[in-house]
């Protein structure tokens, strides 16, 4: 056996054998265990390993870590077939973040709870709050502070109207099921659970239709205030059930149709910045 002089580091041949994959089990184990303790020898491996492979892997790593990590909400959207790009556009506004959903759910649970424990008053409260939840969602998706980069977004070729409808659809898709579930838990006829649906949709389309003229914060605020005043007046002088009655339903349907028509005929207005009409 030819003894080499003892050294504190692995020699070139040993490192090369490891890098080339030709080190047998014993030599390999020796060099590997030394590498785990010796930063200098680890650094020497850089010149011995295929640099092309390392570079291409680095590009892939960079691609992965730089690309924004999809949020929980975005991953959920992907499951429902929404493209990653559309998902990105959705999460840019507060309406698509957890805080808003939690707030909306809390408001509905509160109203639902009130309806369970204090029948008449509580029912009126639920019928008042439930249709407004999607409207507040629209304000959170399109209102003044909702999109802090609004000035930039509006100057891109992406249709602002399309963006608004995309975000509205997401607001409805998240808030309607919650409101429906709370409604189902209420006493009284089952149709109550969806009685607020048409008013809710009417309010959303009304606020959207007025948004290009006065801004979504003002339009949704005005809609919410008007409905609250009507609801309080109705439940003071009459039966809270009237809030879900035929007059409200038919009225809502008419309003909804008118608002949707306005949106469709004035779709291009959304491409202008707020207040530029």
């Amino acid at each position: 056996m030819t003894q080499q002089p003892r050294t504190w580091h692995a020699n070139e041949a040993e490192l090369r054998a490891l890098a080339d994959g030709v080190a047998g089990p014993a030599l390999g184990a020796s060099v590997e265990s030394h590498l785990m303790r010796c930063g200098a020898c680890r650094a020497r491996m850089n010149d011995l390993v295929d640099g092309v492979l390392l570079d291409s892997v680095w590009s892939a790593i960079r691609e992965t870590v730089e690309a924004p990590r999809p949020s929980v909400f975005e991953r959920l959207l992907r499951k429902f077939g929404v493209s990653a790009e559309s998902g990105r556009l959705l999460v840019a506004v507060p309406a698509m973040r957890g805080a808003w959903l939690i707030g909306a759910t809390a408001a509905l649970l509160f109203a639902g709870g009130a309806a369970l424990f204090a029948s008449g008053f509580g029912l009126a409260l639920f019928l008042l709050v439930a249709p407004l939840v999607p409207v507040m969602g629209v304000a959170a998706a399109y209102g003044g502070d909702a999109d802090p980069s609004h000035e930039l977004v509006v100057t891109t070729p992406y249709s602002a109207g399309r963006l608004l409808l995309l975000r509205t659809a997401a607001v409805l898709a998240t808030s309607l099921p919650v409101a429906a579930l709370v409604g189902l838990a209420l006493p009284g006829p089952a149709w109550l659970a969806v009685a607020w649906l048409i008013p809710g949709l009417a309010f959303v389309s009304l606020s959207l239709a007025a948004a290009p003229f006065v801004g979504a914060t003002v339009s949704s605020g005005a809609v919410a205030a008007t409905w609250s005043a009507i609801a309080i007046a109705v439940s003071k002088i009459g039966d809270p059930m009237d809030l879900a009655g035929p007059a409200v339903q038919v009225g809502s349907l008419v309003l909804c149709a008118a608002a949707v028509t306005t949106i469709l005929t004035h779709f291009r207005l959304f491409d202008l910045p707020r207040g530029q009409t």
């Binding site: 730089e66 690309a67 924004p68 949020s71 990105r88 556009l89 999460v91 840019a92 506004v93 507060p94 973040r97 999109d147 802090p148 980069s149 000035e151 930039l152």
Partner: peptide, 15 residues
């Protein structure tokens, strides 16, 4: 201009 909350620099430019 403001920026949407939680976006990284790359994420915002990507948006």
């Amino acid at each position: 201009s403001g920026f949407p909350r939680g976006f990284t620099a790359f994420g915002f430019v990507d948006y």
